[in-house]
Simulated assay, not measured.
Amino acid sequence: MKKIDNLHKNLKRGNVYRRADLARFSSAVDRHLAEMVGEGTLQKLSQGLYYFPRQSAFGPVPPDEATLVRSFLKDDEFLITSPNAYNSLGVGTTQLYNKRVVYNHKRHGEFDLGGTRFSFVAKPRFPKKATLEFLLVDLVNNIASLAEDPEAVLQQVQRKAGSMDPVKLRQAVKSYGGVKARKVFAPVLSL
């Protein structure tokens, strides 16, 4: 049995691995990883990050975003979203963005992971799942970075806020809203 076989038998298809996670299965981990990447068994996603792809009839399946981010951060505390999610609110946003935003507690900056660019934003608080209330508050927090007319969108945001559950929206503003969001929602929610 070759030494690389020990490493190979500990891999599961569809998983993303950090180099440090695989070092315990090999005495020459860097050489073995380079060999496995060279033969196509593993895909190198980023510095020290590898993917053992699942196969479909159409070829290798890319890694699941949550699995990829979880391995990169070594943490489960994150929320993956996109400015495209604002379009579902019905407040006049219609642009499509090629941007994935990861709210987390550890990293800040732009990172390319497996050919996908992620914008990591370190925040003290964010929900486990993006709710409509969170998205509305997040839209106001990020209004300056959107391509739409900010004033027109903010008018629609206030109209939308008036039709939402005030208790949930008030909580979202208090938990996730910046100064701008608090000002925008104050007349509607009596903050």
Rank of each mutant, 00 (worst) to 15 (best):
A20N: 01
S56R: 13
E35I: 10
E65I: 07
F78Y: 15
D30S: 13
L68E: 00
T81C: 05
E77Q: 12
D30C: 01
V37L: 09
M36N: 12
H32D: 12
S27D: 04
S82H: 07
R70I: 00
Y50V: 06
A85L: 13
Q55I: 06
F25H: 13
T81I: 05
A57K: 08
Q43L: 02
R24Y: 03
S56C: 12
R24Q: 05
Y51W: 12
F72L: 09
G38K: 13
P53V: 01
E77N: 12
Y17R: 00
S56K: 09
S27A: 01
A28I: 04
G40Y: 07
D75W: 02
V37H: 12
V16L: 07
Y51A: 02
P63W: 00
T67S: 12
A20L: 07
D64P: 12
L49G: 11
A23E: 07
S71H: 12
L22N: 06
F52H: 15
E39M: 05
L42E: 04
R18I: 01
R13M: 04
S56Q: 05
V16A: 05
T41K: 08
R19S: 04
M36T: 07
F72V: 00
Q55S: 09
F58Y: 15
R13W: 11
G38F: 01
F78N: 03
A85F: 08
F52T: 00
D64I: 03
I80K: 08
L42H: 14
Y17N: 03
L45G: 07
K44G: 03
F25Y: 15
A85G: 05
N15F: 02
L42R: 15
D30H: 14
A34S: 11
G14A: 10
D21Q: 10
E65K: 03
L42C: 13
L22C: 02
A23S: 06
F25I: 04
V69Q: 08
L73P: 01
L45E: 10
V61E: 13
T41I: 09
L11D: 07
A34K: 10
G14R: 09
V69P: 13
D21E: 11
P83G: 08
V16Q: 14
L79A: 02
S27Q: 06
G14W: 08
P60D: 14
L42V: 14
N84P: 15
P60W: 09
S26Y: 15
K74E: 14
K74H: 08
P63S: 10
Y50I: 09
E39P: 13
